[in-house]
């Protein structure tokens, strides 16, 4: 199920045409939050947004087809226990709850806890779990990696990949290029227009373009770019330091 933006214009966005295909799509850049506001019908705009081929006219249309995880987890929480939060969806079974808890890295002890007693990172994980109860085909996450520790981030990436394996279309709006670099299939860089799009490799290797538009670059790319420009040595485009280290070893050795 796809999300399409057709000729979208609003304050600071000009004529945006985009289609988020199935997979893990990450949107970064100064225009990313406006793109999200358009999708959630929070601002006025010209053009058309389609979800699964149907025109999305208002927040109801959006909510019918999309699970949304907001940036601030508290927006989804209002019950006295975590179990009651899950049971807002009256049709959910205990088995499904346990399965979601396992997916987001909690054990069932958390069900009796007051959600507002959880730490900020725990609330964030819970908000993702709650969004999953509605079993939609598209999930939109707003800055999901904010305030999450190392193991939380690993679990989040594992979870997002699992959602993709289960056939979900995932769209992440994020400021965290390090996280985007680890998780994305496709990256969309939005300023007042679509500045760059493609695989993370295609996008992040355009260091000069991104720098000129004040878009942060993953540090692994900054390092490789610095080595190329200052030592004229080309390191491969790598996902993590383990792979990068092999390139360095070959080139120094």
């Amino acid at each position: 199920m796809e999300i399409e933006y057709e000729k979208i214009s609003c304050e600071n966005l000009e004529d945006i045409d985009l289609c988020f295909k199935p997979g893990i799509n990450c949107v970064i850049g100064s225009g990313a939050s406006l793109m999200l506001s358009v999708l959630t019908c929070s601002i006025n705009y010209e053009g058309v947004v389609k979800i699964g081929g149907k025109i999305c006219k208002n927040i109801k249309d959006f909510a019918k087809s999309v699970s949304y995880v907001p940036e601030s987890p508290e927006e989804l929480l209002f019950n006295k226990t975590v179990l009651k939060e899950f049971r807002v969806n009256k049709s959910i079974t205990r088995l499904e709850i346990d399965s979601i808890l396992k997916l987001i890295g909690f054990d069932s002890n958390i069900l009796d806890m007051d959600p507002f007693d959880l730490s900020s990172g725990e609330k964030r994980k819970l908000s993702i779990g709650l969004a999953l109860t509605s079993l939609k085909k598209i999930i939109v996450l707003n800055n999901p990696s904010m305030g999450i520790d190392a193991s939380g981030e690993k679990n989040l990436i594992k979870l997002i990949r699992e959602l993709k394996r289960n056939g979900m279309n995932i769209i992440i709006f994020s400021n965290d290029v390090e996280f985007v670099h680890k998780v994305a299939d496709s990256v969309y860089v939005i300023t007042d227009k679509v500045l760059a799009l493609g695989s993370k490799y295609d996008v992040f290797k355009q260091c000069d373009l991104l720098r000129a538009n004040k878009i942060p670059i993953p540090e692994i790319m900054e390092f490789s770019d610095y080595v190329l420009k200052n030592k004229n040595i080309r390191l491969g485009y790598r996902d993590d330091t383990s792979d990068l280290m092999k390139d360095v070893y070959r080139s120094v050795g």
Binding site: E219, F223, M245, Y249, G253
Partner: peptide, 19 residues
């Protein structure tokens, strides 16, 4: 389980291989 900065993480790996 603390996330270390990229450059520190890379240093650990390079140090392991005596580079």
């Amino acid at each position: 389980g603390i996330k270390v900065p990229f450059i520190v993480d890379l240093s650990y790996k390079l140090k392991y291989y005596n580079l």
